[in-house]
């Protein structure tokens, strides 16, 4: 599963991620960046383009399969 997080302190609203992956990231009210933390896996290339394009390198991506496996013993995700 693809997961992302954006450091919105770093974000300066260049919106390059929105151009690259418009169904994952969006601009609210002129300047605020919002995004889906769990984009569909089919959008992987778009998300990678978005993360690479960020001028302030604020976007982190990871694949969560292993993480879930580690934690499944303790609780059920979702």
């Amino acid at each position: 599963m693809l997961r992302i997080v954006v450091d919105l302190n770093r974000c300066e609203s260049y919106a390059q991620c929105v151009f690259a992956a418009p169904s994952v990231f969006w601009i609210k009210d002129g300047e605020s960046l919002e995004y889906d933390y769990v984009p569909d896996d089919s959008l992987r290339v778009q998300v990678e383009r978005a993360a690479a394009a960020c001028p302030v390198q604020a976007i982190s991506i990871c694949w969560l399969d292993e993480q879930l496996g580690q934690q499944r013993g303790n609780h059920n995700e979702q």
Partner: peptide, 23 residues
């Protein structure tokens, strides 16, 4: 309503091999 609450789980950027005692 744009983001389900359970979609807020944070990515783990490195392999943690941690023991999680949750709840």
């Amino acid at each position: 309503g744009l983001l389900p609450a359970e979609h807020t789980t944070l990515p783990q950027r490195v392999d943690l091999h941690a023991e999680w005692l949750l709840g």
